[in-house]
Amino acid sequence: MKRTSWVLLTALTTLLPALSSSVAAARPAVADATPTTTCTYTSAVPADHFKGIPVFDAKKAAKPYRATLRTSQGAITFTALTDKAPCTTFSFRFLAEHDYFDRSHCHRLTTQRIFVLQCGDPTGTGSGGPGYSFPDENLQGATYPAGTVAMANAGPNTNGSQFFFVWKDTKLSPNYTPFGQVTTGLDVLEKIAAGGEDDQNNPGDGFPNLPVNIRHVAITKR
C-alpha cells in the first residue's frame, strides 16, 4: 500500500523503507528547547479539518491531565507531561477538546526494528496536519521505552497533530518530543501490533491489519 508520508520517524529513513519518495532525509538531533512560559503556534499547511490556531494559556497549560483515546480496538489512556512539554500538551488538549481526532484512524504501524503506532492525521494518508506548527520540546536525553507518546514530525520544529505510541522499547534519535506516558491500554497497543500490518512492499511498515478508529479523545484532570 503506497501512501504520501508527511511525517516520518527519522530512524525509518535508514532502518525501514520509506513509504514514499517525498520523505525527507534523516536529520541530526537538535538541541532541546529552552523551557518557557509561552508558546508560539505558527500557521502552516496543510490545514485538514481546521479548528483554528491555539492561543497559549500558561495557567491552563500547567494543569496536569489524562487523555483517553476511545478506539475500535479498546481504550488507551496516557498521562500528559505538562511540566516537560507544555507547548505540545497544550496543543494536544486544544485539538482533542475541539474533536479534531474524532472519526480519524491510526494510519501507520511499524513492527520491525522500531515499534510504533502513528495516529493524529484526519486524512488517514500520513500527510495531514492541523493548520499550524510549533517547536520541539523535551528532547534532551529523550528515550522511547514502551508506553511513550511522542510527536511525529517532518524535521526539526515541524510538530502538528500527528503523534505515535511506542508499543515496545524502541531506539530512536532524540528528535521526537515525548509528551505522554501510557497508563492503561498498552495491552491494546500490543494486540494491534500482533495483528501486523498490510504493506507487502515494505514489510514491517504499513497500515495496521486491525483497524484503529479513534472515536473520541477525552481529556480529564489528573
Score class of each variant (00 low, 15 high):
residue 73 Q to K: 14
residue 124 G to A: 10
residue 30 V to L: 08
residue 53 I to E: 02
residue 70 R to K: 15
residue 141 G to R: 11
residue 70 R to G: 03
residue 100 Y to D: 06
residue 109 L to D: 00
residue 71 T to D: 02
residue 113 R to C: 00
residue 45 V to T: 15
residue 84 K to Y: 07
residue 95 L to H: 10
residue 137 E to H: 07
residue 117 L to K: 00
residue 82 T to G: 00
residue 49 H to N: 15
residue 32 D to K: 00
residue 71 T to W: 05
residue 140 Q to C: 09
residue 143 T to D: 04
residue 47 A to Y: 10
residue 32 D to Y: 00
residue 96 A to W: 07
residue 92 F to C: 01
residue 75 A to T: 11
residue 114 I to G: 06
residue 132 Y to M: 13
residue 110 T to G: 01
residue 88 T to H: 05
residue 67 A to Y: 02
residue 147 G to W: 03
residue 79 T to M: 11
residue 95 L to Q: 07
residue 83 D to V: 03
residue 140 Q to N: 13
residue 101 F to T: 02
residue 25 A to G: 11
residue 46 P to F: 02
residue 98 H to Y: 11
residue 112 Q to W: 06
residue 151 M to T: 07
residue 64 P to V: 08
residue 27 R to V: 13
residue 108 R to P: 03
residue 61 A to G: 07
residue 103 R to E: 15
residue 83 D to R: 12
residue 60 K to E: 15
residue 81 L to H: 12
residue 54 P to N: 10
residue 108 R to K: 09
residue 28 P to I: 02
residue 49 H to K: 14
residue 71 T to P: 08
residue 62 A to H: 00
residue 120 G to D: 04
residue 125 T to W: 06
residue 56 F to H: 09
residue 58 A to C: 03
residue 116 V to H: 04
residue 148 T to F: 06
residue 80 A to S: 11
residue 32 D to I: 01
residue 151 M to K: 00
residue 40 T to W: 03
residue 118 Q to L: 00
residue 40 T to N: 14
residue 64 P to E: 06
residue 89 T to E: 01
residue 35 P to T: 04
residue 128 G to C: 04
residue 39 C to N: 01
residue 124 G to Y: 03
residue 91 S to M: 07
residue 113 R to I: 12
residue 117 L to Y: 01
residue 111 T to K: 05
residue 100 Y to E: 06
residue 63 K to V: 15
residue 127 S to V: 00
